[in-house]
Write a protein that binds this DNA or RNA. Structure first.
Lengths: 125, 125
DNA sequence: ACCAGATACCTTGTATAACAAAGTACTATA
DNA sequence: TATAGTACTTTGTTATACAAGGTATCTGGT
């Protein structure tokens, strides 16, 4: 079990939340998102972002329009749909509850368990 | 894309962190953990917890001993190994950074993007 | 006109992990 | 010796992050 795997797991879901948030603040294209996520120290790569954006679009949470660039190929500028805004609001609740729950557990909300008495121990198998 | 999926994703990784934390506070067996996680509103089921505990043990992060119960079959009481304690410390850092990064993005750390001018828009494809 | 480099987006294959559901095993009680 | 309750295990399914490689468009130099 590598620490990297767990870190990846932790990012999952949060990524979706962060991306919806970034899109909610104004129209952006993929490189904008990558830049913002990277500067916030949330690692993402293209191979993760593009399929995620496709999933969000297929689910009707985001929509995009092609916009020509003055310095390269056209870009897909994304924005939230109405359904996306509702979804984001739900995610916000989920996230906040999850952080609260985690804090509850990790801030030594202690006192439930006692060490097992030697006399009760059975043989190791 | 169902909200449940994203909620599941969000729990991933966090779960591992919470379980290691619970184990770090004293010897517990699976039902203890389920109870604590449930009361903290973090949903888990047996089919998730047991394989996770097996993974943690194979990775040398936790260890257990069989302890006879006065009211049923014997139980596996888990505790952290030294490697598990180090791992937990690393996870703590990862988690805190992730919360900070997410807050950074979601507390409208705004101002990067402008709406796209109508004149720049290309035709929808 | 052509080519190199930069930019933007897409696809395929692999590995991991949560979950549902069904199964095994042990204990106490009637 | 059934029955119920507790504890632990396993199998199959599904979702998704990521690495790596691919396609398409535009600009600037020659």
């Amino acid at each position: 079990m590598k620490i990297e795997n767990t870190q990846v797991q932790m990012r999952k879901g949060i990524l979706e939340y962060c991306i919806l948030h970034i899109i909610s603040r104004g129209e952006v294209y993929a490189s904008d998102m990558l830049e913002e996520l990277t500067s916030a120290k949330i690692m993402v790569v293209e191979g993760t972002l593009y399929p995620l954006l496709t999933r969000l679009r297929k689910a009707g949470l985001v929509d995009y329009q092609w916009v020509e660039s003055t310095s390269g190929p056209p870009r897909k500028y994304y924005k939230l749909t109405e359904a996306g805004q509702e979804f984001l609001a739900q995610l916000k609740t989920t996230w906040e509850e999850l952080v609260a729950s985690t804090n509850h557990i990790t801030t030594n909300h202690n006192g439930t368990v006692q060490p097992v008495a030697e006399s009760q121990k059975s043989k190791e198998s």
